[in-house]
Amino acid sequence: MLLRYFIRRLLWMIPFLFVVSIVVFALIQAPPGDFLTTYVAKMAESNEGIDQATLERMREQYGLDRSLPVQYWKWISGLAVGDFGQSFEWNQSAWSVIKSRLPLTLVLMLSTFIFAWGVALPIGIYSAVRKYTVGDYVVTFFGFLGLATPNFLLALVVLYLGVRFFGVHMGGLFSDEYEGEPWSLAKVIDLYKHLWIGILVLGTAILASLIRIMRANLLDELSKPYVTTARAKGMAEWKLILKYPVRIALNPFISIIGIYFPALISGAVVTAVVLGYPTLGPLMLQSLLAQDMHLAGGILMIMCSLTVVGMLISDILLALLDPRVRYD
């Protein structure tokens, strides 16, 4: 039952990724001119002429003389084997540029994910069970504030406070002594000494809405008859709340992962730009500004695919949690 459910969910990813790839390809194609015109302009800028023959050869190599469907096919089949095309900005394959930045991106996102969901759960429960108490109002207030503050603004404020009150620049991911060093436990610890700011900044906005969702759902569940049943059995209040309504209120809390994972990816772009993290976000912005479309497209494709990871996580957790999903 469970297995069939997963297979069904996995199969649904295929058309999803297909449509996404078309969207991304369209975006790559959208700017006027193609990769080579930009390239030529770039070369001319740096006074390096390029002869017509080389240009023709490249045009053929990249299939730019073919029809769009053929170009799409070339691009997508390249992606499948890890060939993301050439980044002229970096003068190397786009994949190798992406590859160097991908792990830290994933670390940032997964850490934030765990932070946001892990913190939102107890606070949301507290806020719902202690409805209309001082604690609840405090949580609600900060929740709204977090919701209303754009990521980059919060990041800027943190940076400002760092410089103003501690005299340190809180951006970046590594202290100077670890920059470029091989990985070690000390370096990981150093990484998290910097990363927590990013996690905090990125997590706050999502945390705020997660708390609201958890609170609202739990409030709904707390008034359901099965809670009264459990109470009538003689269960202790906290125990019954955790076993029954919380368990059921977790459903929407989990299924929202699929929708908030993309928000996390979005937020990570802006936050990383402000905090100067060597992750994919700033790279993408840079490549878009430079019209390095193969690189930008590749990153965009990876980011969109990451949302699939979010959907999968939420589906798996949901199926484990709720028998009704499995039996559906």
Partner: peptide
């Protein structure tokens, strides 16, 4: 209402059943 004494009575001395058999039991247990 939250005391140990009343909890010991609930379910042991006095039990209760409700109107909505669908929603009075947890759907996920």
């Amino acid at each position: 209402p939250r005391s140990r004494a009343i909890r010991a009575i609930r379910g042991r001395d006095i039990a209760m059943i409700f109107q909505e058999p669908m929603s009075s039991l947890s759907p996920v247990h």
